[in-house]
Design a protein around this nucleic acid. Structure first.
Lengths: 162, 162
DNA sequence: GTAATCAAGGATAATCTATATCCTTAAAAA
DNA sequence: TTTTTAAGGATATAGATTATCCTTGATTAC
């Protein structure tokens, strides 16, 4: 049970977009090159962000993506769900209904006890991601990443941002 | 990102095994029939429980599975991990290392900030499952499932338990 | 106005995982 | 001695993931 790698890509791309100056855009090409990712496929992940209205886009040269909201208004959960979907990890197939001892046509009034627990775990997972803001990530990077690499990356991005 | 359906099957089977009288065993065949599942494939899930030492087995007629420990000592996490594996949902491919602005051979001392958050969410998920005991599930079933179905199921199982 | 660049998204293919079935082996019970 | 069982290997099918390529229409640069 793995998240798709596009989730990782989208999170990294969102972090880069969060560092863009107001009003500038960064293209799929630049984001793919910066992260060493296949451009065409990364594009699908970015389309997911766009459909979820987490990013704005423009076309043409100097076009690309920028965040649609402040990084403090975007959570990890927003990004993960935009790419991975909103489905739960546990799918209940209600196999208790196959119990041969059941009267035919018996109908359950509550979800299965197993599903309830599994969905609680899913909720705990989502809550953690909903509590993690993109702005927190960016602040953390500023501490973790050496200043020279940080500065060089900023320059690299600004050279390519439309 | 879905758990395999075998996780659901294993949880339901564990709940049934928890209802077995001391020392009795229940076969794959009976468990498959009770839940309306393909016997051969369910067998793989039960083998997972066996490898994780959550259940004991015996061979021959009247053989099958029983819990290796009291249901109060078995958690949802034990069962989920036995079938699904212990891997995390988020796999970090460390794509920050592809940053063209990095000095060659630069080595990260900390895991990526993105991975840290994603792994926190995984931990919250696991913690929830670790807090859910199989005995709690069984107690819940006794409340949710109508008494007549409960009794008929017990009889059905006892007829087949070796 | 023209050419280049871009996001969006459709079509297709390759690879991996989940799902499932079948068969053999060795152990235990009837 | 025969039947039943778990374990596990081999194989097959379906579906999801991971790509790649191409077209379309919008936007910018020249």
């Amino acid at each position: 049970m793995n998240l798709k790698s596009q989730v990782e890509w989208a999170l990294h791309c969102a972090a880069v977009l969060a560092g863009l100056p107001e009003g500038r855009y960064l293209s799929t090409k630049a984001l793919a090159e910066f992260h060493g990712l296949p451009k065409e496929y990364l594009s699908k992940a970015l389309q997911g962000l766009s459909q979820a209205k987490l990013v704005d886009t423009t076309l043409g040269p100097s076009g690309g993506y920028r965040l649609a909201r402040p990084a403090s208004d975007i959570t990890f959960l927003d990004i993960v769900e935009a790419v991975e979907g909103k489905g739960r990890t546990f799918v209940c197939n209600n196999i208790r209904a196959n119990n041969p001892c059941r009267p035919a046509g018996f109908c359950d009034d509550k979800p299965c006890g197993i599903a309830r627990i599994m969905w609680q775990a899913d909720e705990a997972w989502r809550r953690t991601l909903a509590d993690a803001k993109l702005s927190d990530l960016v602040a953390g990077l500023a501490k973790d990443v050496p200043a020279d690499i940080m500065a060089a990356s900023r320059d690299w991005v600004l050279e390519r941002a439309g």
